[in-house]
Design a protein around this nucleic acid. Structure first.
Lengths: 346, 346
DNA sequence: TTCGCCAACTAACGCGCGTTACTAACATTT
DNA sequence: AAATGTTAGTAACGCGCGTTAGTTGGCGAA
């Protein structure tokens, strides 16, 4: 039961009666090392007998690469559970990364923490070869610093960091489509509850899409119609009540997240109002449950798996030195029109 | 922009005019190495000037520990997104693990893959010091093998592996409570749709709780009332339709997962039936959206964060050699009675 | 015969660090 | 004055592996 000491190259060398160098040459299939076939076979056989597996850490030290990339999620406990597609993102990253022989290290940072971010340590200690940063703040000095130091780094959405490679969904376009969908049906008083505080890029981008759609429709931007949500279902309730309490409440609300929309919808129902007759609702993210709500939630669909996959691919290409053509990727979104936005008839 | 070579201990030694050994002693605060205060300060100052950070890989090699634990998730793309609380579990593990200076490596295995599981490589290569295995199959030969080899390992639910440490929610008790809740209101014809195929321990345990509750109530177990779900919302629809098509359909369904329940509820509504008047529904997991469904879903609440946290704690205590008292932990669940199970009145 | 060449290896260094010996200089005791 | 510490270090080995620069013995060609 005691932890067995695993065989090393040295053990193989001794057992096969050759030098460790020869073992290394055989196992790594070095072409221009003239190893005769029978020596080769003998070494391989001994390796098999000893159940040899190379020590990854030693290998990493020798090569100077950790063969590991870090995925940084900036989320509190609530957000993590909430952000239902974080699992999809993780899976997307994992698949491409492991296909190239890399491993995936996950590290959460407390968004409320100040001072040097802990993920800087990950790259300083060479524990990871590169970083994929999920849901970054709009201005994150460490990201810029690491990038300037030459650390391979890719962020999921970062408008402020012009030269840092990024892969993101087209939040602006998605939000634009959501709002335009309402305006085109004649609604002009449209509220907005964000998915997150404004220092998150996704939140800002979605709000910008909202504003742009209003502008293009000749509707003035009214700050009294905009409230901040913060990831969770609960965070949508109070803003929604505030909107309903307005002297002239909106006839539609665009909510930057399906999860936040849950709380908002709950608040609307609690007032005894009817969706979509009294007010229509549009979400964002197209989480699995959205189509099962009563009425089913109109929302903006996005591809979380691809977000992870493309982020991983971009990061790997940077690590390998073959810098990608497109340093900034924007994935398209798609509106899913459902029951919460029936034709406007007031 | 070129990747800076980071300073090593050797660099500090040269700059401070001492040997590398002395640097090591100072930085590691070795007590019985008599380093005079001014030498100590000089070394520390140089280290700061050179922005020294120890190389984690070299350190790991020297110490013979990876300072990393692996979290294995056995899930396909669909399941990963679906299993909304995987994020919570990850976060729980991460918090305890990082508090002890460890890092978290995540690795997904394809549940349909055969042959030696890829996670075996993780421990053979010494890339991780221990493994936390989420949602294991009922009988997983590699787990037993690794454990017998002395690998620190903890599983989230594994009835068949008697001597492998585990941390799990009390699925049997949860399911029992769910079913008893119905029986006590007079219902006797209760269907069951599992959360996953029967080779998953959680699925089997929940079904066992269902059967036990029936038995204790003098109700015969009827296999025609039991169907297999498989993680996703979609997987709940067909089984539900089959139940409704029975000559004598059940008056209640216990579904092993809220996600699967989504599809089932959809199927019930599609038939124009009313919940809970025509049929009552009970889920499992208490996912965030469940309370927002119409009617709100009665379900079994469980603590995903604690699942991760306690799993991590147990694993770390095994790694550190202080084997835990309780090798098998069962976390309690709690029923949340909501609208899908109104009082039975037929 | 002798020189060069090639096959078949191996010695030795480096990756960055922990750790155990061991040493040289100086101070204290007997 | 000699023996015994004590202080302030350092040399050297080990962790497991990649990799370069050799080394040896045999053989064909000049």
């Amino acid at each position: 039961m005691a932890r067995k000491r695993r065989a090393t190259m040295q053990d193989i060398a001794k057992a096969a009666g050759v030098s460790r160098t020869t073992v290394s040459f055989v196992l790594n299939e070095i072409a221009d090392a003239n190893i005769p076939e029978n020596t080769r076979q003998r070494v391989l056989q001994v390796a098999r007998d000893l159940d040899y597996t190379p020590n990854a850490i030693a290998l990493n030290l020798a090569r100077g690469k950790a063969m590991t990339v870090g995925l940084i999620v900036r989320q509190t406990a609530e957000q993590m559970s909430i952000d239902a597609f974080i699992g999809q993102v993780i899976l997307g990253v994992m698949h491409v990364v492991e296909a190239e022989g890399y491993h995936l290290l996950i590290h959460a940072v407390d968004p409320t923490a100040s001072g040097t971010q802990t993920y800087v340590e990950l790259v300083r200690t060479r524990k990871v070869d590169g970083l994929l940063i999920s849901s970054p703040l709009a201005s994150d000095p460490e990201i810029k610093m690491l990038h300037d130091e030459g650390t391979p780094i890719v962020v999921h959405g970062a408008a402020d960091l012009a030269d840092v490679p990024s892969v993101d969904v087209d939040n602006v376009q998605g939000a634009y489509a959501a709002v335009k969908h309402r305006v085109d049906l004649g609604q002009r008083r449209i509220g907005h509850i964000t998915n997150a505080p404004f220092n998150y890029t996704s939140s800002r981008d979605r709000c910008n899409g909202y504003r742009q759609a209003l502008k293009d429709s000749g509707i003035a931007y009214d700050t009294s119609l905009v409230y901040e949500g913060a990831f969770t279902d609960d965070s949508g309730a109070a803003p929604m009540r505030a909107l309903l309490d307005l002297p002239d409440p909106p006839t539609a609300v665009f909510i930057g997240s399906d999860m936040v929309a849950l709380g908002a919808v709950g608040a609307i129902h609690a007032r005894g109002l009817h969706i979509p007759n009294d007010i229509s609702v549009i979400g964002f993210d197209d989480l699995t449950f959205s189509q099962y709500l009563q009425p089913p939630l109109t929302t903006i669909h996005l591809p979380p798996y691809d977000l992870g996959r493309l982020g991983g691919e971009t990061l790997l290409s940077i690590i390998s030195g073959t810098s990608p053509d497109a340093q900034r990727l924007l994935l398209p979104t798609e509106i899913r029109v459902r029951g919460t936005t029936a034709a406007y008839s007031k």
